[in-house]
Design a protein around this nucleic acid. Structure first.
Lengths: 349, 349
DNA sequence: CTGAAAGCGCTTACAG
DNA sequence: CTGAAAGCGCTTACAG
């Protein structure tokens, strides 16, 4: 008894375990697979399970994957892990997948499409059983790439124009209609829109929602009242707002395609010496963390990113389970959260 | 020519490729491994590489891992993927590891220590070559667990009391000293501290930094002027602040152990009808996204989470490369970011 | 410089 | 109900 702790005893594998119990490895394999356990005599199975526990047997998933061609691994592609919208999505995906024994490997796709394909190929090479993509544009070649290889894919937060894959999104048009209706209800007539990139389904649909809602509220879309941001970030929000106000100075309210854009609008207003909501009301989209604490607290459209992640995972699970039904699109209902960045327009306006 | 696209032509593997070129699989294996390519005749290697490209050969990393016992996979454990401090850490880790051909698999450890061990075991079963842990408390059993299995581990953002593993952190004591010095410089004398959980190195060290800095500035730590939060979140920040002000009503400034706690203090002050910074100055820690936009913009200590991630990855790379030197602790220098939540105390105070 | 063989640790037809 | 064998796709001593 030299050392109380055994040397990392060269890992016990199936064969060793079989020897210990005195049966054939294949029997051990069956006994330990819930789906096959019924094939082996109850008492034998019992002894095997017992021994496995005692010896601390841990099956090697790599070996199993090599054999079965299933890895119990799913890849999640996000455009930017640093964007707070994606954390809850990832967390939702990992939670429901984890409960089913899948591990999640998340990859930050970055901006270059080149790198994106490489990443996807890496994941496929690692034999992921499925892919969740939060990265795709409305007409994304990387989606084709996945599909061509036969990997089950579901999209999240963004959808494909051609419905080539199932997608879980927030109901983007409705969300924007909520925003516009709120503004119209407050009495605003000259409303502008900070659009997201038209290549993304969120940017496209929210813009559509804006236009539809304006018509529904019998409000004119003034020329120059829609400015498209090149990216969902604060700088672009600021730039777009400056352009918007320059083109349509009489604007009293802005519906932004997302919160970061709205926050950029705050900065633009400040640099112009205007107050929100006294001069201009602003509504965002997403309800990302902390927008309740900015000044003024942001009125926004809450989407349920974690739920979206959960739903996406469920869809993928079906797909990976061999379900082969039609492509589905599930749209979660967003909710308007009214805070202090919106108010009736001033009479003077 | 029925279909323009070939059926997913049963994947080309090493053997198939070897047959195509007319050499033995082992030769192909060598030619394709940069470290072994010199072992094969240049022209043969050339032909192999060429054919590999043409046939679209993609080596199966699972099979390679099974053989070599190296997976080129590293696990990253975070306590809560939704906490914005961790995204840049993850992103930094993935970036430097990715450049070396490693994939990163991030696991959200959640709160139950039970689940944490399971996750770690899963990762180890998948043969991760190394682990980065952002989860450990100062004396964490799960660290022992990893070490016992011989997995290279490096800690990030948090360190271990016993220096059982290398760690990359921000210089927490210095950071807090920066905060206190700033407050003292403004003329504050009655300064309180919202401490983080003492079980975490950040909570512990920042508190220590607070105490040391108070002494250095010849300021008394009033009884009740340090309140420990049970978690790094806004609710706890609010609760702790209320307790703090109740115990020491004459407080004019608060140094918080992190930004979320500081934001909770904002809420507490508001509920008490007090203004920041007029009644109480507040400084946070971390400089997380958007704290520049809250009201008032938060003075805080900026740590470099992305850099921390990068450094941690580098350390892990060394470790995985077989480096066996002493455990190292690298502390990045934090920086004070002065915004509008701090001001001189009012004369009346 | 190249080939033949063994083996990483599993799973699953195939027999019996 | 259990065993023996083959094989997933690689890599790496071992010969030559």
């Amino acid at each position: 008894m030299r050392s109380p702790i055994a040397a990392p005893a060269s890992r016990v594998n199936l064969k060793r375990l079989a020897d210990a119990v005195g049966v054939h490895p294949s029997t051990v394999s069956r006994a330990l697979d819930p789906a096959k356990r019924h094939l082996v005599a109850e008492d034998v199975a019992e002894r095997i399970v017992q021994a496995a526990r005692e010896l601390g047997y841990r099956p090697n998933p790599l070996a199993a994957s090599l054999r079965t061609r299933r890895s119990r691994l799913v890849g999640v592609l996000v455009p930017d892990i640093t964007n707070p919208v994606f954390s809850p999505i990832i967390s939702g995906i990992a939670a429901v997948l984890g409960a089913e024994g899948y591990s999640t490997i998340v990859a930050d796709a970055g901006q270059e499409p080149e790198r994106r394909l490489t990443l996807i190929d890496d994941l496929i090479a690692r034999q992921v059983d499925g892919l969740v993509m939060a990265t795709v544009s409305r007409d994304d070649p990387s989606l084709e790439h996945c599909l061509a290889q036969g990997v089950p894919v579901v999209l999240v937060n963004r959808a494909d124009d051609h419905d080539r894959a199932s997608a879980v999104v927030s109901d983007d048009m409705t969300g924007m209609q909520l925003a516009v209706a709120h503004l119209a209800g407050l009495g605003h007539r000259a409303i502008g829109h900070l659009a997201g990139p038209a290549l993304l389904s969120t940017g496209h649909l929210r813009r559509l929602g804006f236009e539809v809602a304006m018509v529904a509220n019998r409000l004119p879309v003034l020329p120059g009242a829609i400015v498209e941001a090149r990216a969902y970030d604060r700088d672009e929000g600021e730039r777009a707002t400056l352009a918007l106000i320059k083109a349509v100075p009489q604007i009293t309210a802005i519906a932004a395609s997302n919160d970061l854009l709205a926050l950029g609008a705050y900065s633009a207003l400040r640099s112009l010496g205007k107050e929100c909501p006294q001069h201009v009301s602003i509504v965002g989209h997403n309800d990302m963390p902390l927008v309740d604490m900015v000044h003024p607290p942001l009125t926004t459209v809450r989407i349920g990113p974690r739920d979206m992640g959960c739903e996406a995972a469920k869809l993928l699970l079906e797909r990976m389970g061999g379900a082969t039904g039609a492509v589905r699109r599930v749209a979660l209902q967003p909710e308007l959260i009214v805070r202090a960045s919106t108010a009736p327009p001033r009479k003077s306006a």
